[in-house]
């Protein structure tokens, strides 16, 4: 099923009164199925907060996030966890692999969390590891992998459950830019071929240029005109 996302007047405020920090202030945008969007902006512009809200990790203060027509801004904790495991593939900035599991097991972990056929999961994991160039390192413990290898395992894990949304937070943090571009390209191919949706937060403009569209965030606001295609 093609994935659609419509973000309307989304805001996130931390704290209250004079102490209040307005991290995201009324952001609206919509995407087409198969689209790969980059969100750029300086540190503290609210990029990661925006991504976390779309990924169901943070509850917005206001506004709505419709994923395939369902507003996930108003879900309870349990439903949000279900949304995360079923619809979202999140590549965290810190990768966050389970160190005592192998790369392959880190992928299969998603099947343990979300359920589904074990045999299919094994096939999918092997296929993803192959595509990400990790076939030879698949059975090494995550703690023994290089930063780049970990990043690719994290991407494989994000794709394991065939999510509607693939969210990537600062992919270049632990990748050299050449390798990084290659990985982001394969991620884009995956998103396009399945008509899913990719959103990448980055401050690397070269990386952002690979996306179909670049959203520029400043002080929690989308910069005018940034919604245009690049």
């Amino acid at each position: 099923m093609p994935a659609t996302l419509r973000v309307t007047n989304l805001s996130k405020t931390y704290g209250r009164g004079e102490q209040a920090v307005y991290a995201v202030r009324g952001v609206s945008f919509a995407t087409e199925p198969g689209e790969f969007v980059a969100i750029v902006g300086p540190s503290g512009s609210g990029k990661t907060t925006l991504l976390a809200m779309i990924g169901g990790l943070l509850t917005p203060t206001g506004g709505s996030i419709e994923v395939n027509g369902r507003d996930i801004a108003k879900l309870g904790n349990g439903e949000r966890a279900a949304y995360r495991r079923e619809s979202v593939g999140y590549v965290f900035q810190a990768n966050n692999l389970v160190p005592y599991l192998t790369g392959r097991e880190n992928l299969l972990l998603m099947q343990a969390i979300a359920g589904g056929g074990r045999k299919e999961a094994r096939q999918r994991a092997s296929q993803l590891l192959e595509e990400l160039g990790l076939a030879s390192r698949a059975d090494a413990f995550a703690s023994r992998l290089s930063g780049g290898e970990r990043q690719r395992v994290a991407i494989g894990r994000a794709l394991m459950n065939n999510p509607d949304l693939v969210l990537v937070d600062e992919p270049t943090a632990s990748l050299d830019s050449q390798r990084g571009r290659q990985v982001v390209r394969s991620l884009m191919e995956e998103v396009k071929s399945r008509e899913k949706l990719g959103i990448m937060v980055t401050h690397d403009m070269e990386m952002a240029a690979l996306a179909d569209r670049v959203l520029e965030l400043h002080d929690g606001l989308l910069k005018e005109g940034s919604a245009a295609s690049v």
Partner: peptide, 16 residues
């Protein structure tokens, strides 16, 4: 705690 947070971020329930 960090690892548990990560598992939950991936959609694992507290019960899991």
């Amino acid at each position: 705690v960090a690892q548990i947070g990560m598992l939950k971020a991936l959609g694992a329930s507290s019960f899991f």
